[in-house]
């Protein structure tokens, strides 16, 4: 899709299976919001085709099955929170008794019941997001599309939104999530795609993308100066990781009256390499505190993929 000489999306081929929670990642201007707008018929593609819930994009009746929370959503300032939900419920085709039941339940669920009669222009950012979530799931959608749902929300609010999304996932809804908060995406999503400059750089399950590499990290402690470094020199691919091990105590601590340094070392390779390093460390009288396979966080993957993309 191109507008005014700017290609917003190019060669994008993506399938989101039903019932999955899908995260779309990418830096600002990557084309994430444009993709969402195309799926919802808010913008039109200049080329290519796409479908939502088995129907071509732009199909108006299909939108009855879709819930959407846009980034920086803006509700009519003259409406109260309750009126906002009724308004969008009516637009979604919900009839009165059912609509009222859902509005009441959702206002309680997102802890906005006490604010139901207050006009939305008096709401804080977090309250607007909670109301936005209620609006998005009001019609119990089969597909829930969320653009930065936790933007500007405090940690407690983020947790509430996450719980709400997990409920929707348990209900069987497909969730399409645009977010900069990679930790949120990592916790919630089954699959992710990384987009940059309108092109798809990587797509896969969160488990695959962050799968353990052929690398191991060992937390060690030694009272002998240079013992850890000496052990690492004996094993190819081994080295001391800069910085202190997470969750470790003070780097320098007193053990049996001697000065003990706690370090984290890493070795690249298979189990044989790991055992060789352990043997070398033990030969130097270094204590082994913990051994963990090295796993990339989604943030690591995201940064690496973007760098690879830029280099290519």
């Amino acid at each position: 899709m191109a507008r005014g000489g700017v290609v917003a999306l190019k060669g994008l081929d993506l399938v989101v299976p039903r019932g999955q929670t899908f995260g779309l990642l990418g830096p600002n201007g990557a084309g994430k919001t444009t993709l969402v707008k195309l799926l919802l018929g808010i913008a039109f593609p200049t080329a290519g085709k796409a479908s939502v819930l088995g129907r071509p994009i732009g199909d108006v009746p299909t939108r009855r099955l879709v819930g959407y929370l846009p980034e920086n959503h803006r509700y009519p300032a003259h409406l109260t929170g309750e009126q906002v939900l009724h308004h969008f419920g009516r637009l979604s085709g919900l009839r009165r008794p059912e609509r009222s039941r859902r509005v009441d339940a959702l206002l309680k669920r997102v802890r906005m019941d006490e604010w139901r009669s207050v006009r939305v222009h008096k709401y804080s950012k977090g309250m607007m997001q909670r109301l936005g979530m209620a609006q998005a799931i009001l019609n119990e959608p089969d597909l829930l599309i969320l653009d930065e749902p936790t933007d500007g929300v405090d940690p407690i609010g983020r947790r509430e939104i996450r719980d709400l999304l997990l409920e929707q996932k348990a209900r069987g809804a497909t969730i399409f999530l645009n977010s900069h908060l990679l930790s949120e995406v990592e916790r919630l999503c089954d699959r992710v795609a990384i987009l940059n400059e309108g092109a798809l750089l990587r797509e896969g399950s969160v488990a695959d993308l962050t799968r353990p590499q052929s690398a191991w990290q060992i937390e060690v402690r030694s009272t002998a100066s240079g013992a850890i470094e000496a052990a690492c020199r004996r094993v190819p691919g081994a080295g001391v990781v800069e910085g202190r091990a997470q969750g470790a105590g003070p780097a320098e601590s007193r053990v049996q009256g001697a000065s003990a340094a706690e370090r984290r070392v890493q070795v690249l390779g298979d189990a044989a390499a790991l055992n060789a390093l352990i043997d070398a460390l033990r030969a130097q009288q270094v204590e082994i505190l913990a051994v963990t396979p090295r796993r990339d966080s989604l943030e690591d993957v995201f940064v690496r993929v973007l760098h690879e993309g830029e280099a290519a």
């Binding site: 959407y68 920086n72 959503h73």
Partner: peptide, 18 residues
């Protein structure tokens, strides 16, 4: 103009009304 403001029009157009 108010209906067309960013954040407002997106929501309206996502609803099942032509």
């Amino acid at each position: 103009p108010r209906m067309l403001e960013k954040g407002a029009i997106d929501l309206l157009l996502s609803k099942p009304i032509g």
